[in-house]
Design a protein around this nucleic acid. Sequence first.
DNA 1: ACAAAACCTACCAACTAAGTAGGGTAATTT
DNA 2: AAATTACCCTACTTAGTTGGTAGGTTTTGT
Lengths: 138, 138
Amino acid sequence: MLSKKTKYAFHALTYLAENQDKGAVLIQEIAASKRISHKFLENILLELKKAGILGSKKGKGGGYYLIKKPEEITMAKVIRLLNGPIAWLPCVSLNFYEKCGDCPDEATCNMHLIMCQVRDHTLSIVENKTLADLIGRK
Amino acid sequence: MLSKKTKYAFHALTYLAENQDKGAVLIQEIAASKRISHKFLENILLELKKAGILGSKKGKGGGYYLIKKPEEITMAKVIRLLNGPIAWLPCVSLNFYEKCGDCPDEATCNMHLIMCQVRDHTLSIVENKTLADLIGRK
DNA sequence: ACAAAACCTACCAACTAAGTAGGGTAATTT
DNA sequence: AAATTACCCTACTTAGTTGGTAGGTTTTGT
């Protein structure tokens, strides 16, 4: 299941996408609009900034804003950043790969093969859906 | 990600499927073979029993055994039982549904629609893959 | 009766989630 | 210079989950 952090990130991103014309938007404005704890949202926005999705500006008139087009921000990227691996097993993860101690050989492990299928099916969606699809005007 | 509990369940089930001719198998035998803590495995097998997947017999010569054919035990069933919801959001879950407070209308929520797609793609695999596929002789 | 085995209850340590609270620093505008 | 705002940090809470461990009870075959 997606964590609240991840959900909040999507909420914040959609808000920013829908208000791109405004320029920088205050943390407080997003928090109030989406009813998210200000301090918690602060961390989330910071993570999104460090990941190169958001930009920020300090001082009066400051705030956060998208530095990418909504069509360029995939759901996969946001989920990996805030939620962690998309795959169901570490030995099947593309971005968080870890050798699995359970089977001696990944190439012949049925579980591994099936989990790869699940991963690929999931990725085929979330790698191709973007913020633009979430705000519904692509 | 799948929990260890879930992985252990699959390990135990494949062991039981591969040794169906033996009749009842001791917890200890499975635990030793798959290198799982005896007591932890005990809980898992009990859950599988309560779910109607395994049967058990007490006393000497007792142990656990499959009461369904491997082809009848879907991965989805095992995952839901030990791991929880397969869907990424409660409002998209078939077996653990909960109304989501985030959007006013599920029918028009883009997030909801996309997460439904992810769920359906995932289910199309794990509802159709069974224990028989895991032991690799279907 | 005895031993073997599942069954059941309880507990525990470590970790994570989802915050809350508070403060201080740095950059920017007015 | 003052106000505003993001940035960064520590610490705490509350609740739940994970991955166990310990020990006693019940059933059953011999």
